[in-house]
Amino acid sequence: MKNYYFSTKKMCVGYDNKPLIKEIELALPKGEILTLIGPNGAGKSTVLKSITGQLQLIGGTVFLGKDSLAALKANELARKMSVVLTQKLKAEMKNCWDVVATGRYPYTGWFGILSKEDEQMVDEVMELTHTTDIRHREFDKISDGQKQRVMLARAICQEPEIVILDEPTSYLDIRYKLDFLSILQEMREKKGLTVIMSLHELELAKIVSDKILCLKGEYVERYGTPEEVFESDFIQELFDMKNGSFLKNKKFAAYIRQLSAKP
């Protein structure tokens, strides 16, 4: 068996003990990017929330390396896994620098006072994510796109081995989408960061992911490399685009063909 950094065994997720998706089997080597795609309401967020421990698993186990996630101590897990959620972080009276600095939480002492190294780390990460220019701005008063970048900075500042991102590119303009994804790729090459995220932009998922998980219905629809997922008319099936009125429009039809094309 290969050495996987992140894996799940018969993971079953859902709300209030009602399973939504059953028997999810994932295996991801260190430093790979896994992207979740699927139609709205397919359960992408549910899967991500279950992985981060925000939702109780209904069945199965999640492993980080050889350890079961449930067996890890809370602080140990915090040093290994960071998150960027769709739900906004509450940052009353905090500027962007403060928000990024909250990522240092698992490393500070009893009273949470930042050391010189912690502060330096925050500065470096803000430089890396191009957020230095808004460091003094109040977090509640910047745009959604800027917030998203600050949240990424915060997640990186936590020095994780794996980062979980729920639709991280939603509010970003095209330049920052690319910027965002290239930072993730850079982090994985430099530090072996493993990434699990959900994306709505199929064309981006196609080019950045090592593995793609397609969700729809009760079981995993398909799990594999971009080449395995983007073939023939699978994408059209996944998103129910086989027969829609938009197919009559030639330009739309061509766009869909281009989306489902092999990378």
Binding site: T52, A74, L85, L89, K90, Y105, W110
Partner: peptide
């Protein structure tokens, strides 16, 4: 003595949980 976990709690439940609280 609780001031550190309280500061994480102020970020919202999900983020506090991820911080190990």
């Amino acid at each position: 003595l609780m001031s550190k976990p309280l500061s994480a709690y102020q970020l919202g439940d999900a983020y506090a949980k991820n911080a190990g609280v």
